[in-house]
Amino acid sequence: MFLLKDVKYKDILYIKDLEIPRKKITSIVGESGSGKSTLLKLLNKLISCDTGDVFYNNQPLSEIDSVELRRNVVLLPQSPSIFSGSIKDNLLIGLKFSEKPLASDKKLVEVLKLVKLNKELSEYANNLSGGEKQRLAIGRVLLLEPEVLLLDEPSSALDEDTENMIIMALVNYTREKNKTLIMITHSKNVAYQFSDRIIEIKKGTVIN
């Protein structure tokens, strides 16, 4: 699905050759500052590499319209932004941005259940705790049903029990819907337990 050839981005990332498979769960592990988040941003074309090529479905990213790509390959950053308004507004905003049909309240409630967020749709989103905001943001990207989900430490603000529940839900969702999941995780346990493939990055290069 993704293929990276001789990719260099500033002094942060150098990848000689890397393939990320389609419809699998891939975890990216490595120390902080090793270039993991930069790699996800390259895949989402939020940044472009200085040299080399990134291919998506055998097509160089430079030839793919960025907005179209981001509607298929959605990135959830480590500290996702919450927009002003209610939980419902925040869930729907992704669909509005990607110009997809808006979901019914019933579907929104189902997504909240999936991310273990027991809140009313009308509640003000900025009043949620850090962990709740992170789950809301996960729900927001799940609603988009993208081909590829890029998650940057999706459970960093969660306690261990909630983390396992959320990762489980994401894994189940990915397998049921036949999607591709690429996630950065600080937990090697999570990586070994749930991934089909693990990529280890150290000082900007893939070592394993």
């Binding site: 509607r71 959605v74 950053p77 996702p80 905003i93 941005f97 927001r140």
Partner: peptide, 17 residues
Amino acid sequence: RHLVESALMLGATPKMA
């Protein structure tokens, strides 16, 4: 800018963001 970038990540065009 973090909100603008978040909007881009969710598939917004620069105009929407």
